[in-house]
Design a protein around this nucleic acid. Sequence first.
DNA 1: TTAGGGTTAG
Length: 568
Amino acid sequence: MTAPRSASSSATAVSKSSFYSSPSALSVASLLSSCRSLLGLQQIHAHIVRKGLEQHPVLATRFLSLCAAFSAPAYASSSFDRIASPNLITWNALLGAHARCSPLPTIVSLFNLLRQRSPVPPDEFTFPSLLSSCSRSEEINVGSSVHATILRCGLETDVFVGTALVDFYRKCREVGAARKLFDSLLLRNEVSWTVMIAGYLSSGDQTSARSLFDEMPKRNVVTWNSMIDGYVKSGDLVSARELFDEMPQKDAISYTSLIDGYAKAGDLASAKFLFEQSPDKDLFSWSAMISGFAQNGRPGDALKIFLEMHNLNIKPDDHIVVGLLSACSQIGSLMLAKWVDSYVIKNGIDITKAHVLAALIDMNAKCGNMERAARLFESMPSKDLISYSSLMQGYSIHGAGHKALELFSQMLEEGLLPDDVTFTVVLTACSYAGLVEEGKKYFELMNKYRIVPSSDHYACMVDLLGRAGRLKEAYDLIKSMVVEPHAGAWGALLGACKIHGDIELGEVISKRLFELEPTNAGNYVVLSNIYAVADRWADVPKNNSEQYSLDDKSVSPRSCVKNWHGFY
DNA sequence: TTAGGGTTAG
């Protein structure tokens, strides 16, 4: 590579020999190489300024690459601006500090500045950062013109540049173009192969990905992880597991991909087993396990994992917090909700992020802190469907069905389009508030929004009619369903039979329910209750209900529709 | 004549 002009420039305070002769430059260099945090970097920076080493080209460049590592592009720029004569290497480091997180227009104007002001033209180190920014933004036009520039500079034969180009085309979903480039590369390393494999995987072509994987001469951890994750994402857990077992050296990501796959498939036992096996768990691993349990209706287990993490003094991120909030919303304890709420704030989690805020509103609403839920909701600059649904559901659970419906009207006025979950919440609100006619109106309204009523919606309607004593109408509705009614719908009707003492229908419904879920004790309990209320004590014991409490909550539609979280 | 910069996975 050409030696940058700045080496001989008088503006460069430190000469070649003084790099060795200056003990302070040497000590700062070693401080920089052991720097592990942004705070540490700031302290070293203060040191650099105090010692008058800001113009030192090597130190400045190392400093900039650490800014890249800690995602501090603004910090990098402000320090770069004080360098009198940056050389190309320093320019490249600055570009690198911006590549991962700054918007593409910023990167492009930096690149143009580099071309104007760098003592020598851009080289093979310049383009990979520039291309990775184009890939991130999927800006095919900008990337293509960068490609043209690379050809003009004759840098396309460099393996880093070539690989970054392949990656660019595959991230823009141009897998064919990526493959053509890949085949034309004179030199390929593991990264080049991995990028091409990832291209096939993201286009759903596991077969081509696997044949490249088998064909390539040398694989690294990223290659293995990409292939495993590709299988997991396609739902092929068997192939994923086979590869995982074959993998010579696994890291946290290898484990987390599979843990996540098992958890999403509902196989919590396998997920937990691997989780316990994984030697270095990172935040993703904890998060996969916590959300896995939360999404599968096992909030207690989710909480246990969280506490284990908490006891290790690991600071949570927003993903962990969303999983935790979801678990707590299912537990429904106000005390726990209050603790978690303050825990989230104390840990500096950004609650203005949409998914965090939605989960926080949802938890507070479900745990009975409607005041807090409403305040959080009001704080949203633009309210979305999920938050509306959460708040509406909170009002509905806590007996304020009218308020829930008011919110629904407000939501429609704001121009938001309700989805299937919104309607389930609305119908439940009507049911709890005994608003039969309104409920029927909203059920009809679903047509207008082209939402086909699901079993859940029918279950809500059956509950609504049933509670109001319109058992026949409810039964007719179930019979009219195109989709097969699930246990929740039948259970709602059975609950209504209990309330209104309809033994005859109760027996018919029970028969159906016992077939559908023979192990659900709740159904037997309700039938027993129906007999008991009717003074038919002789029939009570035949349902084996003695050991169960007389709590019929388990068969209300709440049991099938209560966890909205899973829907989003 | 040595230092400092670049591409891949959840």
